[in-house]
Design a binder for these strands. Structure first.
Lengths: 151, 151, 151, 151
DNA sequence: TTTT
DNA sequence: TTTT
């Protein structure tokens, strides 16, 4: 039956991406993203509440994350909630929730390691911000190569 | 620091709402929501994948959920990801992820137990679908009482 | 520069889809969707405010809309805002805003004209609710055929 | 009938906010926001497509926009589509679509004119990024005054 | 455990 | 563990 499972986050990475190259030319990147909410409590004091999200990126997006994201990077993320369930050694049911990222966009300033040669004109197609929108369901073949970064 | 933490779901309840009345006139409802995704695998077979979400509603929304939602109900949900963390008896760090619902809307047909008397005119303010939005624009008066359900 | 342009709607069609078959095997469907918001004004009276949206669907989605949607259908829509600008006969700048639909899902009950023969097994791939998620950027080739409906 | 009308944008302002102070202590700000999408056409050339959105903010949000946003500012916006319709001098039906902003968040670096004195402690409540959310959870006290900007 |  |  048809459903919708959508997550939208804006936050900062708590650490550099952790990237694993798997067999069969597959790549996965894991990110820790903090989204912080700020509000006033009853006493009028400003309170900050931070939620930490475990993000998972696959394929070309994992590679772009590896290359351009790092601890502190601010990103916009779109994805879906995905959980793994298993039994632990005590026979207890366990569940781990992750955000499967379907697209992300770097926010704020130009990344330090963006591919912009010095003296490159401002109107260069090497735009200063990364936008990655593979919108890849499992059945879609994204035959991108490393030379073919989306920005 | 400013962030965004937003979840949008459309799915069906796997069970009737579980409602607890707490001290201090507080109410909480817990719902189990299934979002099902359907796609074709490499062999061309249609595959269904269901994700189960733990929803948490508070206050007036909890009461409306109790009154109008039941096992099988299809709803649109907007909320945010919220996790509790603690140490279990083995001293292991544990984390439980929930969706804190900020608004929801009943989808599909008129709920069985909707407050529509027979012979009630079609233009009755007892509209057939529940829409609950605790968050309102500045011009909207939310002086709701318990007798004053938003539909 | 990287941006986000996302629209999420839940509403009902004000009329049957208008479908045009263009040259080159292209199809476009135009839908009128009403989203209705209900709130109480200062006097405590319930007020309904309806916004009408012009939706545009292309390709396989247009065909599915033609086949399964009709006046009154309730759908969930995801898309982006897209405007055409031109000069009218008086030389005035004009602008027309549409929602370019990227995916939609039928809500509520089984559509009347869904392809479920009586005695059809429950596991039929002709599932009773349409879910269309081509997530088609302009560069993605969706070589679906009519026999290959996504439900 | 219950509906959903939601817009999520990330983009940059094309000009400084235009703010009007109305009678009765009301304020409205109009913003022009560009969302740019980048993709490759059939020839493999990168193409940028920019959509311009007319945003409308009211009350406290309008004041914050006036104070902290300017041409070029990158923001995350959440709102709804809202159209005005009228007849022009030729008796033609006209329609103007705007985004009614319900919340916004400044992205990227610290705004130039943010209220951070030099030597101000890092834990100052005068946080450098604006987050404005008129819609709040039930437990949040929104007793803001004009002197009491939410960051 | 839902829905189709 | 981020950001401000």
């Amino acid at each position: 039956m048809a459903g919708v499972n959508k997550v939208i986050l804006v936050g900062n990475l708590g650490a550099d991406p952790e990237v694993k190259y798997l067999e069969g030319d597959n790549v996965v990147a894991n990110l820790r993203l903090a989204t912080t909410e700020s509000y006033k409590d009853r006493s009028g004091n400003r309170v900050e509440q931070t939620e930490w999200h475990d993000l998972e990126l696959w394929g070309q997006q994992a590679k772009i994350a590896e290359q351009y994201l790092k601890k502190g990077s601010q990103i916009y993320v779109e994805g879906k909630i995905k959980s793994d369930t298993w039994q632990d050694e005590q026979g207890q049911n366990r569940k781990k929730v992750r955000i499967r990222v379907l697209s992300f966009t770097m926010l704020g300033g130009r990344p330090d390691n963006a591919p912009n040669a010095p003296n490159m004109p401002a109107t260069s197609t090497n735009a200063p911000k990364a936008s990655v929108q593979t919108s890849s369901g499992p059945e879609i073949d994204l035959s991108d190569t490393d030379d073919d970064l989306p920005f």
